[in-house]
């Protein structure tokens, strides 16, 4: 019974799962790059820059993910429609909101990891005549990344969990397709159990990947 309807629903669920994975990847990539820049800014920036990043991080982290998604979806779209007469699609809003969330987390961990390294590392780089970005890339980054990876993986799993919230602004991702299929075939327990298993496998795989990466980057 369950297997039959699972077989029928497979293309539908597969499309939803792909959308979940794609939104997660985009949100994580955009959020991580923005977060790294913000983290660098708050570790090396002047007083004003540090303050701005701190306020940004505090605000973004204080707003729950769902509220961020609704705010972007309703408020930012309303403002955009007023000013430029165009609106973002629900998926774009979702990716944007999740990326904001990710960027605040990454900014915080980058700052922490850089400040945890001793001042001597920077000075050593300067002493052998390296430029700022050279120091960052070949001295600071390899050491900081080891610190960052475990927390970064946790935020990545949080983003994957966060994609379920997009179902509330009717993005056709995995959770909404599961709900539709479960309601159509009246197989609630089976399909919800299946969804739990899928999310568990995705996040567990991410965790395993994190441990692999951690080992890979601790070669010094």
């Amino acid at each position: 019974m369950f297997l039959d309807s699972l077989k029928i629903a497979t293309p539908f669920l597969w499309a939803g799962l792909q959308l979940t994975v794609i939104t997660s990847i985009f949100a994580i990539l955009i959020g991580t790059s923005l977060g790294l820049l913000l983290g660098l800014a708050s570790a090396y920036g002047g007083f004003a820059l540090r303050g701005i990043v701190k306020v940004y991080v505090d605000i973004i982290r204080g707003i729950p993910g769902l509220v961020k998604i609704f705010t972007v979806f309703y408020l930012v779209n309303a403002v955009l429609a007023d000013l430029f007469a165009f609106t973002l699609s629900a998926i774009a809003c979702g990716i944007f909101a999740l990326a904001l969330h990710c960027s605040a987390q990454v900014a915080e961990m980058t700052r922490g990891a850089i400040l945890a390294l001793s001042e001597g590392q920077n000075e050593a780089g300067k002493a052998i005549g390296m430029r700022f970005w050279q120091i960052q890339i070949s001295i600071i980054f390899p050491q900081a990344i080891r610190q960052i990876i475990p927390t970064w993986v946790t935020s990545a799993t949080e983003i994957v969990k966060g994609t379920t919230l997009l179902s509330l602004i009717s993005v056709p991702e995995f959770f909404i397709t599961i709900r539709e299929v479960a309601a159509r075939d009246f197989l609630y327990i089976e399909f919800f159990g299946f969804a739990m298993l899928v999310y568990f496998l995705i996040n567990f795989a991410l965790e395993l990947l994190g441990t692999r990466l951690e080992r890979h980057f601790s070669y010094y």
């Binding site: 969990k161 379920t164 609630y188 919800f192 999310y199 568990f200």
Partner: peptide, 23 residues
């Protein structure tokens, strides 16, 4: 711990509210 920590909380809420009544 491994199973629950990796679940999206929204899915858990929907599970308790919509699915558990069926059993």
């Amino acid at each position: 711990v491994a199973f629950l920590r990796n679940q999206p909380p929204l899915l858990l809420i929907f599970f308790v509210f919509f699915v558990l009544p069926r059993i």
